[in-house]
Design a protein around this nucleic acid. Sequence first.
DNA 1: TCTGGGGTCCTAGGACCC
DNA 2: TCTGGGGTCCTAGGACCC
Length: 422
Amino acid sequence: MAPPRPATILHADLDAFYASVEQLLDPSLRARPIAVGGGVVLAASYEARAFGVGAGMPGWRARQLCPSLLFVGGHFSDYQRLADEVMAVLDAFTPLVERISIDEAFLDVAGSIHLFGSPTHIAEAIRRRVRAEIGLPVSIGVARTKHLAKVASQVAKPDGLVVVAPQSESEFLAHLPVELMWGVGPVTRARLADAGIHTIGDLAAAPTALLDRLLGKAVGAKLSALATNIDARRIETTRRASSMGAQAALGRRAATAGLVRSTLGYLADRVAGRLRAAGWAGRTLTVRVRFTGLRSVTRSATLPVPISATLTLTELATELAGAALAAHPREHEITLLAVSVGNLVPEPALQLELPLDPGDDRYRPRTARDAARWVVDRSVDAVRARFGHDAVRYATVMFSDVQRVPEAFRELAEHAALKPQS
DNA sequence: TCTGGGGTCCTAGGACCC
DNA sequence: TCTGGGGTCCTAGGACCC
């Protein structure tokens, strides 16, 4: 038997990130229960979590649980700046850093040991530096695999370090609740609980057939592998996005043609602009309409050629939304519209293909228009790059009233997401 | 009195092709 | 002449993540 791979994977995760930043920027908020957000809690400080307040919770529910809860507005550009500074600290220890969200990353420090000492020493050094230089608490898990490191960092919170030695992995996992695993949310947790499976140890011991039946073949196999500690995933420093989208919550609004059209115009403009900026176009467009009670439907269409022109996306999105609404004639109010483009391909392919349009009459006019519009869009992009986004606007978007969410938050979410890259 | 915006991956059924 | 299996793509829905 070959000796086991040593524990060289780190998972670093900033604690209650948005809330910690607010407490860092405003000392009067320290040691107090605070939440970032308003209608929905984006992040809660540990003092607030003690009352049961958590991310994703409606604001009224959070106030109910914790009457002294203080809501603070978000300083979104500071979140981006400080998180980037933390990532720069990680980069100083190894080039093998995989950032998986704004505030967490995996590292493989196998090649850094001769420079900086053992993985445990490196983790301690990172925590010291982030605390001293940036002022934020970060928890770190150290283990042999990504899954173990991620679970370990959750166990380490708040402001801690947990190292899982290769010989004690099963022991470490056995008594932890299944919901600490990546991929186990409320629905899966409940399904497993119904079958008497509560801990990761229970999951590891469960028969494959049972898990297949409870969760489906793929999910069952994946969780079973992780629970029995089979995880061969490596650090990926270059991941690329496979779709790009935008959405807007509307409150409760009558689904009028005008509202739908102007909102989709706004969303299509955002998505198309980001696609062109990144040099991509996509073949599949998906529109989601959410009704009251969180019921939602989607409609999608796949074209023979990729598109990225604002007006083409707007028109197609409007058609799809019309189909979705027509299928639900009893729903009169909508609460959210979303537009997403998938099947992404690099833009140059689009430009080469256009003159050689396939003889599909259904799409030919649309595609030909898309080419002309793409050229116009590029000049709009150029004007915006120089004079600001509001220098040019599309007529349908001018009347849009979806700017309820601060632009800075949209930008933060956008930057936190993966980027397509060639 | 049921909420934000950005994503990934999986499933199941049907169409279509060889 | 109605029968086989496998693969790929598309669509709609759902669970999950930060």
